[in-house]
Design a binder for these strands. Structure first.
Lengths: 252, 252
DNA sequence: AGTGTTTATCGTCAGGAAGACGACTATGAT
DNA sequence: ATCATAGTCGTCTTCCTGACGATAAACACT
């Protein structure tokens, strides 16, 4: 049976990326400045059209590489240097979300360690890491005194959903290690939790919890003193992906 | 700036539904028989094209009503009689998932109480509730001796993802009540958990847990004896949506 | 009426995990 | 030498769970 193009309305399909990292004790997201209407000059999440022969996850990985140079590792691939965790987040398809045409956007969530300098088309002024509270706040002024405009399209909602996903997922999975470099200390991992949740955690109980969970951390044998104070043991992420029992997020 | 249709490839966008219920102590999903190629005669998940002026959740709710007569209540709407919980599950967009054309499907998950007789276009033989293990098993024969063919398209994967979402979500949310009628007993709720997880739970510990979690259940004052044995208190779902601490799923 | 069966509900006890927090260790800075 | 900083090991109490005994209230038999 030949297919009848008039039987369904045509859609444009895009992927948008919520790329999160932890910088200077704050959860930050990658934002790019729009060069063309609509929302010209406003900040938005990176993203682009899905190509004709691409799977959704491929398109997301391609966009991630284009914007950050990060390679994606999915649920099956092992942790790699200079790699980022990538997973599908949710899909947004309000008929009016793009004034030009009917666009359905499959949002993805990427978690990356700190370091990679933003590069969007080689122009650094058009991409930046910004604290998520700054990107999500409505109106007012940012830390640099620049007036804050809301993100383009429905990207504030997408970012909020991505942040919430990350916050809840580090409770019951070892995903927080995706924010850390290949080797890291217990203290660095704790500061990731503190930045993502916005709370302070007891260093002693945290240490007991993460070192006592089998498969979460494997010691590399080395130590480091890069944080000052007593040298700390170095670990890398273990094979475990699910934490049981989970890490408990303190109330309020 | 006028939009350029040649700048992006056109997609068809559909919604597919994983509709789950508990019947006869088994987790069952709604399946419909395909009346046309491809996969003519095979079982598939209900679904259809998203219309030009519809949001994704609207399209999913419409399809759900068409197939089952169930009204959907989302995250914000209160529990209703003859209503079903509906949430977005994930999006599937492999370029080859539909041999006819490029189709991106936004799968949704619906949880409904038992009872509604399937009706797909008024023909009962083209829709049925089937245990999820039966729909997911590869080859072999079903309980009725009929040979089992795999679900059409990638619907086995979608169903598996939906079942896994349901199994994990009743751990930390009060969503299991979506499988129950408006008023239900602790025993009925326990049998929901047992059917979804495929395990046996201790009735005494389960009773202590659910009645001890604030906001999970509110007694209606009535009692019932429809399960035989001593009359049981009737409850309805309370306002709480998140269970803290969660209900623990027994190992293995 | 009595007995058994079924389901519901209450109670007890031991073990594990988490929060609070004291104490000690090993580095760099002053 | 002293202090500040960060890491690591223990202790104690409290809460939650799993295992399981015991009682309660219905129905189905004989």
């Amino acid at each position: 049976m030949p297919y009848d193009p008039s039987a369904f309305p045509p859609f444009a399909v895009t992927v948008d990326l919520v790329v999160l990292t932890v910088r200077r004790h704050a959860l930050c997201a990658l934002a790019v400045r729009r060069g063309e209407p609509p929302f010209q000059g406003r900040w938005a999440l990176p993203g682009g059209f899905v190509r004709d022969d691409e799977d959704l996850s491929q398109a997301a990985a391609r966009e991630l590489a284009e914007e950050t140079g990060l390679r994606a590792y999915g649920p099956a691939a092992p942790d790699q240097d200079n790699g980022a965790h990538l997973e599908q987040l949710a899909t947004y398809g309000d008929p009016k979300r793009d004034p030009r045409m009917r666009v359905v956007s499959v949002a993805h969530l990427a978690l990356a360690p700190d370091l990679p300098a933003p590069r969007a088309g080689g122009d650094a002024s058009n991409a930046r890491w910004a604290p998520v509270e700054e990107l999500l706040q409505q109106g007012g002024y940012g830390r640099d005194g620049e007036p804050v405009a809301p993100l383009a399209f429905d990207h504030a909602q997408i970012l909020a959903d991505g942040v919430e996903r990350a916050r809840s997922k580090i409770e019951y999975s070892s995903l927080a290690t995706a924010f850390c470099p290949a080797e890291f200390t217990v203290g660095e991992l704790r500061r990731v939790y503190e930045a993502v949740w916005g709370v302070a955690l007891d260093p002693r109980n945290f240490h007991r919890k993460v070192t006592g969970t089998p498969g979460f951390l494997v010691p590399t044998g080395g130590t480091t003193t890069r944080q000052g104070g007593r040298p700390a043991q170095l670990f890398r992420a273990g094979g475990a992906t699910l934490l049981n029992p989970p890490m408990l997020r303190p109330e309020v």
